[in-house]
Design a binder for these strands. Sequence first.
DNA 1: TGGGGTTAT
DNA 2: ATAACCC
Length: 355
Amino acid sequence: MVPTRSPSRVIVHVDLDCFYAQVEMISNPELKGKPLGVQQKYLVVTCNYEARKLGVKKLMNVRDAKEKCPQLVLVNGEDLTRYREMSYKVTELLEEFSPVVERLGFDENFVDLTETVGRRLQQLPNDELSAVTVCGHVYNNQCIGYKTAKRLEALGISSVRDLQAFSPKTLEKELGVAVAQRIQKLGFGEDNSPVTPSGPPQSFSEEDSFKKCSSEVEARKKIEELLASLLSRICQDGRKPHTVRLVIRRFSSEKYCSRESRQCPVPPHIIQKLGAGNYDVMTPMVDILMKLFRNMVNVKMPFHLTLLSVCFCNLRALTTAKKGPMDGYVTSSSSATSHSGKRSFKMKDTHVEDS
DNA sequence: TGGGGTTAT
DNA sequence: ATAACCC
């Protein structure tokens, strides 16, 4: 069969199922064959097929899961380190086929193989080319996002069919032209958005949720833990974060997913120390984070937090050394190459202002 | 209802 | 700094 036309793009979507559970079964093969759930706090965030057969669902309460399946084996999955490492192994493997790999979460990758396939087809002799069949799937992307789902429902759109039939002009007026055109095309199974190579991560964060944190010393303890893990991650990556952020969630109205944050530049003298001696940076970084904390939380008044998170972002390869009278005129820096795992990437030689 | 991530505003 | 989205 000779295809009458080539598809415009060849994109492979690699979606791993119950990824955390699979990592755990590789770590400990004795878990294979048993119903296994990965637990974070009071939730079974994912589970293997054996557990699913016995009625355990993703994001199920531990209580409910145990009730459904008393033999369920639970492992704690609050530390994402091994999952993150395995996740990047998977995307690095895929990058060997084509560097155009876009990550979505820890367990999904999109690979644009258009050029790879094109090159292969050109090399093929004609008789073999005639045997090539092109096939594929059109993904009918279900769920659009909670907020816009609500807005669409207000317009009387509750199914994909409704969305397809709805007046494009009216939808553009309601949602804005960009979103309207995007989701309506998605409604027809068309997604022309490019596969954007993710490259190395743009931020590192660690968070911890809990029932109650109501004192400054308690908060400092938690922040120190989060920070220690982050510093070792930063160290491994090799790049330097130029911005720190502290995020909190208050108990108060328990308004779903309502977080507050404060951020500030990482002082240059700390950035420089970030490579080797990470104990030197611990104390000054905690001080900075506690200032951000007190900026958000009035510690003279009672408070009740249910989450703390520390995030490093604005990552750059090198801190540019500035010294002497030429300060402000000249930036002395060599073009930097940073290595993270197997990847290496050139960084732009930029001069920056932190906001 | 975890512990992450990204982009847009 | 927040909001919305993804897993």
